[in-house]
Design a protein around this nucleic acid. Sequence first.
DNA 1: TATATTTGCTTAAACGATTAAGCAAAAATA
DNA 2: TATTTTTGCTTAATCGTTTAAGCAAATATA
Lengths: 342, 342
Amino acid sequence: MNHKKKTTIKDIANVLNISPAAVSKALHDDSRISAKTKKAVRQVAKNLNYQPNHLASALRSGKSHLVGVIVPRTNSNFFSSVIENMEAVLNKEGYNIIITQSNESYKKECDSIDTLLFTQVDGIIASMANETVNLKHYEKIKSKGIPLILFDRGENDLNVDYIGINDYHSSHMIVEHLVKQGCKRIAHIAGFKRTRIFNNRIRGYVDALKKHDLPLDEELLIESNLTIKDGRAKMTQLLELPKRPDAVYVAGDYAALGALQVLNEQNINMPNDIALVGFGNEPFTSMVTPSITSIEQHSAEIGKQAAKTFLEYTKKKSIKQQLNKIILDAELVIRESSSLKK
Amino acid sequence: MNHKKKTTIKDIANVLNISPAAVSKALHDDSRISAKTKKAVRQVAKNLNYQPNHLASALRSGKSHLVGVIVPRTNSNFFSSVIENMEAVLNKEGYNIIITQSNESYKKECDSIDTLLFTQVDGIIASMANETVNLKHYEKIKSKGIPLILFDRGENDLNVDYIGINDYHSSHMIVEHLVKQGCKRIAHIAGFKRTRIFNNRIRGYVDALKKHDLPLDEELLIESNLTIKDGRAKMTQLLELPKRPDAVYVAGDYAALGALQVLNEQNINMPNDIALVGFGNEPFTSMVTPSITSIEQHSAEIGKQAAKTFLEYTKKKSIKQQLNKIILDAELVIRESSSLKK
DNA sequence: TATATTTGCTTAAACGATTAAGCAAAAATA
DNA sequence: TATTTTTGCTTAATCGTTTAAGCAAATATA
């Protein structure tokens, strides 16, 4: 219980009457140190309860072994699962992560980046905030020569690695499924068009309608910020149409939940009157009544791939990033809200 | 866009033909540096896009300005809100946080502590995993002379600061509310008795029953790990009793949700047949049908208080920790699942 | 046996900041 | 005018590691 001084490499050196350099090398299993010395060093290190000073080694080696993570929020099953799996892969290689939340705010995202760069992280793995349009702050990361990996919410213009699911194809799956259930007027409560993933979902939706010879009705395609509240508002809006849709595909589970609440309140039967499909497969989709059909985004795999992508850069000496996409196939999880109409 | 070298204090010194020491002092607004020099330094720093090297200053000053946070999971509204508010307070004072998740695992919690100590954090704010009984790893933090602050899930034996809500009183509020609704057989799906907060909720439940002259029926008090799955299992168990309860108070919202699913599936009317109350006021409690009465734990305030408590230690020179509890009053949010039976 | 190579260390200089100590010049005081 | 105090810096050590360079002793090769 020595509250005072921490054991350093020098203390170990003194005990064994060797140089601190030899101790450092012994601890790093350098080939130029004898097995005997290594064993002795490790023993003394243990006895003195030696804990390496991360700051010192990071300063000297220029590597902090810290990876910064920026997510819109941790309070979502998707992001927390991504992080959990990312962390597991990185920890195994001796990297730790610093998590920051942007709360979907551009300003907070800029602050997060400054914080992470200040902390001298070796890399940044991020999913962009909804608000983000200007990319200057992300360019800052690149100009520092630090690897940047984006997932879920990315931007082609940044020319960095990206891991995500096939949003375009996911929309196709959803529309196809709804058509099979007999739906003919399929609405889409979409995310912001300017965000790439939501744009892809919209394109998928439009193309899939064409493919099945369904007319594209502009009043059935509505942009939303995809919160519960806005999901309610947009669903209400759809119900006020002279010709109501018989299916609603919502680009996010939270907004789908808002839509579900409105439908339940107005005693509209799901899926018989209106079928409902969400996106993201948040746990609550299986918990509500009726349970909501949704898209599983393979968060675990996304997290692992993002971590692996970062780790590859640590093995290279020069960091030349380019647009390099890893696109995973999503999976449609069919539940009560869209199951075969009788 | 200088990919190569980062600007250091030395570069600034060279430009102005002064010493690095003068630059450092100028940047820290030292009184022994002239206003003219300070201005010049700041200008050059800006021009060269100087970013202080956190590792170097941390190494020299012995302060990393990093605070470690350990939570059972980030994927819960309570913890993510605590973290968000904690972060806001700490950022204002120049501290950043490193978030780690224990996933309710004792092993992972030990690893998290090692990771944080390795990263040379200036303090640790934690909420303990369900599994945790042995406290040796937390003693390790104390023995390093680093302030430790616990919230929500704490332990008296550690003799450190604690911020939480009045669990005992919360149980009283719940039982009182249920009695007012006309309930006479109130069950409690409790957390693990060995965890202090859950123990307090149990004591509150028992004492409140006594206070209202209700008999304590042992088969109505069941321990649970409070997951959705276990909530289902324990609710099913309660329904199999010869004398069913007319109200169920669940010590966690997720388990309450499991209970709600079972009740809905068996077409048991809430609150007329059985009233249901959860704990934690997770957002979904207001989203499900029927909405679930729950306890709001003031996560924002807990986060702020925890951060402030840590900051106080940074202003003292000697760290002498002792059991110092900040107990906030919780609030009962009444919803459909327990609203006046007709 | 003479030379080359390998082994096992040491020395000393970094990494980029902070800070105690020191010192000349300017300003204030006697 | 002589002395003290204040101002505004500089010098150099330091935080705990890593690592390039060097060097003697041991071993291998010719």
